[in-house]
């Protein structure tokens, strides 16, 4: 009786792991939705809106480009260089206590330690794991590349918006401003690289 309970019709035939391709898009939307809500709850609306805005553009561009054709792994040197620039900006932000500047300027409840932990160390870790995903030319890899390059353009803009929102006469230095132009430049080069690479491929 008990042995009958554990019997099944499963076989040991080799079956490749092949979920339907649209699962990638659903997974990305599920992760981003959860992430945006978590950021809204713990860090407030300005950061959540920046994240949601970047996510919306990244998903749209991904669905129109590297969701249809694979993301080339030849982008990796540029992608890794952009991660390095993110780390450099993280260091500048920590050195100048950007967490406190953001928390005071936009009333975001976050400490400097947590800002560095989430937005520098953990983010860089996930970007590096994303590089491994890009290497295997998966659909998800295409989204990760779009995300990094778009974030590199949109996020640095927040430093200048924060400087403007202080309403102080003259130039106000916000930690992260010095390394921002490098990130924006790499973001633009990255986007151009993806678009050119797709355009240069033979039409199927």
């Amino acid at each position: 009786m008990l042995t009958q309970l554990f019997k099944s019709r499963l076989t040991d035939d080799p079956i490749p792991f092949q979920p339907p391709l649209w699962i990638n898009a659903v997974a990305v939307l599920a992760i981003l939705g959860t992430l945006c809500l978590a950021v809204y709850i713990y860090m407030g609306a300005p950061l959540a809106l920046t994240l949601a805005f970047t996510s919306a553009i990244a998903v749209t561009l991904w669905l129109k480009t590297t969701y249809r054709v694979f993301q080339s792994r030849r982008i990796l040197p540029l992608y890794i260089f952009t991660i390095l620039a993110q780390l450099v900006q993280g260091a500048e932000q920590h050195w100048g206590d950007y967490g406190t500047a953001v928390s005071l300027g936009w009333q975001i409840p976050i400490t400097s330690t947590n800002f560095t932990l989430y937005f520098t160390l953990t983010a860089v870790a996930f970007y590096l794991l994303g590089a491994a995903i890009i290497f295997y030319q998966t659909k998800l890899g295409g989204f990760i590349a779009w995300w990094l390059f778009l974030w590199s353009i949109i996020y640095p803009a927040s430093h200048y918006l924060l400087a403007l929102s202080t309403h102080q006469p003259g130039f106000t230095y916000i930690p992260g401003m010095l390394s921002s132009p490098l990130l924006v430049m790499l973001g633009i080069i990255g986007i151009r690289w993806i678009l050119n690479d797709i355009a240069e491929r033979p039409k199927q």
């Binding site: 160390l121 953990t122 860089v124 870790a125 996930f126 970007y127 590096l128 794991l129 994303g130 590089a131 491994a132 290497f135």
Partner: peptide
């Protein structure tokens, strides 16, 4: 890349 990413999570 996998090691580098996992090491950064560890850090």
């Amino acid at each position: 890349l996998l090691t580098a990413g996992l090491l950064m999570l560890h850090i």
